[in-house]
């Protein structure tokens, strides 16, 4: 066997794998965003049982490891007779994971809109849907930006867990390169650096948004 050393082409492979990390993150955030949005609505609904179902969902997702969500979707999907590529299982589980956390973040944002805004819009004869659409959600959206971007960092990092079922994203690519080069320290530092390059700007963006939000509300 010829040992390769960790050079430019290996680094290039890592960078191309980073693309899959990004793709998976986008799937998780958009899928999880849609599901999480409706769960957040259910969580703040006027129907008691809807609130209970949503709260239970959130409690469960936040009480189990991402890895278990991954295995359950992976084996669950194949049980259902679906032979799907790892991307689908990875995307599905990341979606479920993100939905549980986004729902909780957004519930907090919806509930932090003062209740007088509900009363004022109700007194103007708006329906509940109109209240959400025109008054509550636009304000909640602004409040939610910093924490949503902050959560995106968590998603980027947690996509690495999908490497365990063999989905080739950045962490898995690192393992593959390591198997060929036997230079684990270098390889995994490079992998970590690539994650950092994606996550750090997002973290800073989240912080900046947070500061801006505070500056506004104290004007």
């Amino acid at each position: 066997m010829i040992l390769r050393t960790f050079g430019f082409s290996e680094f290039g492979f890592l960078v191309s794998a980073l693309l899959w990390t990004v793709v998976l993150t986008i799937i998780a955030l958009s899928g999880g965003g849609i599901v999480g949005f409706f769960i957040a609505l259910a969580r703040t609904s006027t129907h008691k049982w809807l609130r209970i179902v949503a709260a239970t969902y959130i409690q469960i997702i936040q009480g189990i490891p991402v890895l278990m969500i991954l295995f359950l979707s992976y084996y669950g999907l194949s049980l259902a007779g679906l032979q799907l590529p790892p991307l689908v299982a990875a995307g599905a589980s990341m979606t479920i994971y993100a939905s549980g956390y986004l729902a909780e973040i957004w519930r907090g944002c919806i509930q932090s809109v003062p209740k007088q805004q509900w009363e004022a819009s109700e007194s103007l004869a708006m329906t509940r849907t109109q209240q959400y659409r025109y008054v509550i959600l636009p304000q909640a959206l602004r409040i939610s930006l910093p924490s949503t971007v902050g959560f995106a960092v968590q998603v980027v990092k947690n996509t690495s867990i999908t490497s365990i079922i063999g989905f080739v994203e950045l962490a898995r690519a690192g393992q593959l390169i390591n198997n060929a080069t036997f230079q684990p320290f270098r390889v995994f530092i490079a992998v970590a650096a690539l994650y950092f390059v994606v996550c750090y700007p997002l973290s800073q963006l989240s912080r900046w948004l947070e500061r801006r939000l505070h500056a506004r509300s104290h004007r």
Binding site: V153, K157, N158, S160, I161, S163, A171, G174, Q175, N178, P184, F185, F188, I189, V191, A192, Y195, F196, C199, Y200, S203
Partner: peptide, 17 residues
């Protein structure tokens, strides 16, 4: 550095690196 890199990769560095 820790908060902007995945836990899994941190483990790899400790265990394999």
């Amino acid at each position: 550095i820790i908060r902007n890199t995945p836990f899994l990769v941190q483990l790899f560095i400790v265990y394999f690196g």
